[in-house]
Simulated assay, not measured.
Amino acid sequence: MNLLFDFTADKATKTIRITREFAADLDLVWDAFTKPEILSQWTAPKPYRAYIKEMDFREGGRCLTAMISPENVYHWSLAEYIKIEPKSSFSSRNSFCDENGKNLNNASSLTTTSFKAGGETTTVYVEKIFDDLSVLEMMVTKGFKEGTAAGFANLDEYLLSLVTSK
């Protein structure tokens, strides 16, 4: 199955928009984005791995995550959940941080992740609106598109393993 992946960066609005289809039902895809035991399995592009130090998926909660390099270097990020509409969307304020969640550069993005069920697929829409254009530019030039695509490919593998294990 050829699954849609669209990635656009709009410097004028300081926004990255991602659309990605997954060959799974809405419940499975929603869980993959909102349950730490699943999220940690797919979100890091190989050869990195993800470590979720804490995740409290509720409005006012947060998720403190590290991407760990093959050399064991930790790159921390924080998502602070603003609004959650179960199995529909969630929004968060995202930033690079230290291991305690303290913002490192006062730059962040407002991220909205939305889910739409289809026949045999679920489509995920991600919109990241950056406070600072230089952060968007850094993300684009440092491989954010490629890392996102690789993480989503990991999620494809995870979802396929659920289907084949039934």
Results as ranks from 00 to 15, higher is better:
residue 101 G to E: 09
residue 92 S to I: 02
residue 49 R to P: 01
residue 65 T to M: 04
residue 40 S to D: 09
residue 110 L to I: 14
residue 51 Y to V: 15
residue 82 I to T: 15
residue 116 K to I: 07
residue 145 K to T: 05
residue 146 E to V: 04
residue 52 I to L: 02
residue 50 A to Y: 08
residue 118 G to D: 08
residue 146 E to F: 08
residue 138 M to A: 15
residue 98 D to F: 11
residue 55 M to I: 07
residue 92 S to R: 04
residue 109 S to K: 00
residue 56 D to R: 13
residue 162 L to M: 11
residue 20 R to P: 00
residue 27 D to K: 09
residue 47 P to D: 04
residue 105 N to D: 15
residue 91 S to W: 08
residue 146 E to I: 06
residue 112 T to G: 01
residue 119 G to V: 14
residue 147 G to F: 07
residue 127 E to A: 11
residue 105 N to W: 14
residue 119 G to H: 11
residue 147 G to Y: 07
residue 11 K to Y: 11
residue 92 S to L: 03
residue 159 L to M: 03
residue 30 W to V: 02
residue 41 Q to E: 09
residue 98 D to C: 12
residue 71 E to N: 14
residue 50 A to S: 13
residue 39 L to S: 10
residue 126 V to W: 02
residue 7 F to H: 08
residue 52 I to Y: 09
residue 146 E to Q: 13
residue 25 D to M: 00
residue 63 C to M: 14
residue 85 E to M: 07
residue 45 P to L: 03
residue 149 A to K: 12
residue 72 N to F: 01
residue 61 G to C: 06
residue 36 P to R: 12
residue 109 S to L: 03
residue 32 A to W: 07
residue 4 L to F: 05
residue 133 L to Q: 14
residue 162 L to S: 06
residue 145 K to Q: 11
residue 11 K to I: 13
residue 116 K to N: 04
residue 57 F to I: 12
residue 104 L to F: 14
residue 49 R to D: 04
residue 76 W to I: 06
residue 4 L to I: 12
